[in-house]
Amino acid sequence: MTNTISIRANGLTKKFGTFVATDHITFEVYAGEIFGFLGANGAGKTTAMRMLCGLLEPTSGEASVAGYDVYREAESIKKNIGYMSQKFSLYEDLTIQENIRFFGGIYGLSYEGIRQKGNQLLADLGLQSKAKALVGDLPLGWKQKLAFSVAVLHDPKIVFLDEPTGGVDPVTRRQFWDLIYQAAARGVTIFVTTHYMDEAEYCDRVSVMVDGRMDALDSPQNLKEQFGVNSIEEVFYRLARGAQRAD
């Protein structure tokens, strides 16, 4: 982790009519940091993330991602980020290799680049022998590791993970986080939303969203000390208890 700022948000707000989905959030994420984004459903996590990815125009406030402004330079942002959605995001009717070629292709990698990075990816995951297997035939855990590896195939500066480990068993989740650590060690900034509190403990810093506001932001250790509790889970419950939009 360095002190270079990777994502900066200042009073970032999104309103849908009278509903304030994201309410003046201000934070900074450093390059190579694993930044956890916690919050109940409807707390505004996805909206915030979509604004940072350039999918949604903010109503007010400022934000920059990888040094690019979210209002004016969304196209440059897209070139520098990777994204993995809640829903498993590879094509199941394509083979592993075909998925790699496709995603490498739409990120504009050269054929040679796709070949090299693709081989490296398969070697890292130990999937060389399965290159021609349909992704749909793989176990869920493998699919998710593959989806993450594909999301960082083009060497993005930042990768956004939207609840990446939904429905995966704890062992596989741990393996998945090993991949995240490896990417962070290479200097990739990780912006991850999650429901799993044990995962929150793996993050360098954690933010908690309540009703569109960012009510807490610190390292897991500091947060636990600040609230005088033993786990991030309890921190989260303390904060979320006051939520108006709980479901």
Binding site: L55, K78, M84, K87, Y107
Partner: peptide
Amino acid sequence: ELGTMEVLLVSPF
């Protein structure tokens, strides 16, 4: 439905 549309829209394509 699959969620891949979102991935496509986040891409520079």
